[in-house]
């Protein structure tokens, strides 16, 4: 079923959305978060509901300004691996057989 609708302003320029909103909420299973509105050639308004999809924050880490600057500095001037890392690498060479 189409989710867009065409509404026509009355003589005073008002549009009624009550029944449309109820229908669309049932259809979408939730209230839309917004509408795209387009004026049609005959002066009516075409409404298309939008539902905001939460960005997949689970796969993005968003850094504060201070952390951003630390990270960029670290990328620019990468430090040498420390002793513990070098030792673990030597241990990996001894302990891991061919994969």
């Amino acid at each position: 079923m189409a989710t867009e609708t065409i509404v026509r302003p009355d003589a005073k320029g008002r549009v009624g959305l009550g029944s449309y909103l109820r229908r669309i909420a049932t259809q979408l299973g939730r209230m839309p978060s917004g509408f795209a509105a387009e004026l049609t050639s005959d002066g009516a308004i075409m409404l298309r509901p939008r539902v905001e999809v939460a960005a997949d924050e689970a796969s993005t880490l968003v850094l504060s300004v201070a952390d951003r600057d630390r990270l960029l500095a670290a990328i620019d001037g990468a430090v040498a691996p420390n002793q513990a890392l070098l030792q673990a690498k030597a241990q990996h060479e001894v302990m891991v057989g061919p994969a």
Binding site: L63, S64, L71, A84, A88
Partner: peptide, 16 residues
């Protein structure tokens, strides 16, 4: 092992 924690996200640590 040299991973650096973020100040505002101490359980996220990075290495360049």
């Amino acid at each position: 092992y040299g991973f650096e924690p973020f100040a505002d996200e101490p359980l996220h640590l990075f290495m360049a």
